[in-house]
């Protein structure tokens, strides 16, 4: 069975979700995307592909650029294997940038449902995950200069939880290069690595101090998680305490961050004591 979809000029999570539901229901084997020879669609198609790849499993999807003419080309996504998504109510979360306390509250309700009700981790201390989630989420809201970002969370039977955050904004690498014009970044991957150092910030708001990505890095290492950042022309992967930085064969407008987190490393919840004091 084949499905043909027109990719909208502006990729939105709603589109991805509809597609996802359609895919699940249809038992498809192949999907074709109309890929108009237009930069923004091109970029969206790549974003879509990457997101689907992350959401639908680690092995099942490959990108094949099967045809390309002046006006039309196709992206082909092959059969999905090992689709591992949590149940329907909370398989994914889509949030527009938070601009009010009410929206933060909504986000927390979603998260609470996801972390505490839908996943069998009631006795685990999920706070490290929550911190990662919010730091990355706020990255999209504050730094990307894009109206929409999207976030997918999936949890499989192997206790691996995967977060995928993406936006089609300016991208970490471009932003770093535009801000630190006195520094030399041979590739976008170098710029991403630089952004991950502690206290490196492009200070988009007065509250940005450059701790977000470094906090992410520390947590990735502490919890033996895996991280992949795809941004503009570069990619950085952190796995087993090793960092791999390389160039992409395509240009990804915006940033995609994928984290694979093994829940086995979360500690059990403990009695919390509010006894600490700090004199600065």
């Amino acid at each position: 069975m084949e499905i043909t979809k027109n990719i909208p000029l502006k990729l939105e999570a709603k589109f991805l979700m509809e597609l996802y539901i359609q895919l699940q229901e249809s038992g498809y084997t192949e999907i074709y995307f109309d890929w108009i020879n237009n930069h923004s669609v091109d970029v969206n198609a790549i974003a879509l592909y990457l997101s689907l790849k992350q959401v639908f499993g680690f092995k099942g999807i490959t990108l094949k650029h099967i045809n390309h003419t002046e006006n039309q080309s196709y992206l082909r996504i092959e059969k999905v294997i090992n689709c591992s998504i949590a149940d329907n109510d909370c398989k994914d979360i889509y949030i527009t940038p938070v601009r009010s306390e009410e929206e933060v509250e909504m986000l927390k309700i979603y998260l609470s449902r996801f972390f505490h009700l839908c996943l069998p981790i009631q006795n685990l201390d999920t706070r490290p995950l929550e911190i990662l989630f919010f730091e990355l989420f706020m990255n999209i809201c504050q730094h990307s200069f894009d109206d929409n970002g999207f976030v997918f969370v999936s949890y499989g039977e192997n206790r691996l939880m995967q977060f995928v955050f993406s936006d089609l904004g300016i991208g970490i690498a471009q932003k770093i290069k535009a801000f630190f014009t006195n520094k030399d970044f041979p590739t976008d991957a170098h710029a991403i690595e630089y952004a991950m150092q502690d206290l490196v910030s492009t200070q988009t708001t007065t509250h940005n101090k450059g701790r977000g990505l470094n906090t992410l890095y520390s947590n990735i290492v502490a919890y033996k998680a895996e991280l992949e950042i795809i941004c503009n022309g570069g990619r950085v992967i952190i796995s087993d305490n090793r960092t791999i930085a390389d160039n992409l064969a395509y240009f990804y407008q915006g940033t995609l961050i994928s984290i694979t987190f093994d829940m086995s490393y979360l500690k059990a919840k403990e009695q919390v004591n509010f006894e600490e004091e700090i004199d600065f």
Partner: peptide, 16 residues
């Protein structure tokens, strides 16, 4: 009564 805060919260509260 507060379980956890992010570094971003500390930025806004204290580093500010």
């Amino acid at each position: 009564g507060i379980d956890n805060i992010t570094p971003s919260f500390v930025n806004g509260a204290f580093l500010y």
